[in-house]
Design a protein around this nucleic acid. Structure first.
Length: 253
DNA sequence: ATGGCAAAGTAGCTTTGA
């Protein structure tokens, strides 16, 4: 089983790239998308199903929007974090072959003095509270998405000066998930130095590999022990008109 | 200190992202 996450920064623009990537990677069991940026009535469900997949989605125009594309049936689909009032469509959960998938687009935060930063921290608190329960209901659970947090300094290129995405409260929120028992499966394996999942569109950042690792796959212990590989696939970032993020893929026995 | 790039909404720009 292969699980993947990709912030596509508009599915309207990126749908052909998503379908091409799935065709080139036929072993993918589920692909979690963030920033689809489209309302449900215009979601390209028919095109995705025609390619041989099932899909669940929770859309919003302009901002946010999440979806899960899967090879099999997606059961018990839930939108957002239960009990946490949120206008924004940022979380979508479903069960595939006994594995609970949580697709999340964690808020960016904009700036440390912004209301959006406080929203981000409150949001992460609610996510942690909820997942503390979900991991009991679903021993095999993966949290896949754009976390908008670079957990450690090695996940950040040397020229990054903005405190956002690396601030102690943001990293503490990530660490809390680790303390709940979730495993950053990427770090279970030896990885190249300067492995990033996002590069700014500006200033030839990708060419210079000036990026951040902010897209992650966290797994409960029972699922993490099945993990045999986790890689960042930079190929789509080389494409014409790419998303600024690239897919992260984890393989499970 | 600032812009730089891309996308969306909407029609000359602004807002947001990370």
């Amino acid at each position: 089983m292969q699980l993947a996450t990709w912030n596509v920064n508009s599915l309207k623009i990126r749908l052909p790239q998503v379908l091409d990537w799935l065709a080139a990677n036929p072993g993918i069991s589920a692909l979690c998308l963030q920033e689809t940026k489209m309302d449900d009535p215009v979601f390209p469900q028919a095109e995705i199903e025609a390619a041989g997949y099932q899909v669940a989605f929770a859309g919003q125009k302009t901002y946010n929007g999440v979806a899960i594309i899967a090879r099999g049936a997606l059961d018990e689909v839930i939108i957002n974090i239960p009990g946490f009032a949120d206008e924004q469509k940022r979380v979508l959960s479903a069960t595939l072959d006994g594995v609970r998938l949580v697709c999340a687009y964690i808020p960016n935060g904009q700036a440390l003095d912004s209301d959006k930063y406080q929203y981000k921290l409150a949001w992460l608190d609610a996510l942690g509270n909820w997942l503390a329960q979900e991991r009991e209901r679903f021993p095999q659970l993966a949290l896949l998405g754009d976390y908008n947090i670079a957990p450690e300094d090695r996940d950040v290129h040397a020229k990054w000066t903005d405190p956002l995405l690396v601030s102690p409260p943001e990293r503490a929120a990530f660490q809390r998930l680790i303390e709940l028992g979730f495993c950053d499966v990427f770090r279970r394996f030896e990885q190249p130095e300067k492995a990033f999942s996002w590069w700014d569109y500006r200033g030839f950042s990708f060419k210079k590999n000036a990026g951040l690792r902010i897209d992650h796959i966290l797994a409960t212990p029972a699922l993490a022990e099945r993990c045999t590989a986790c890689v960042i696939d930079v190929e789509p970032r080389r494409h014409e008109r790419p998303s600024d993020h690239t897919p992260v893929v984890a393989t499970f026995a």
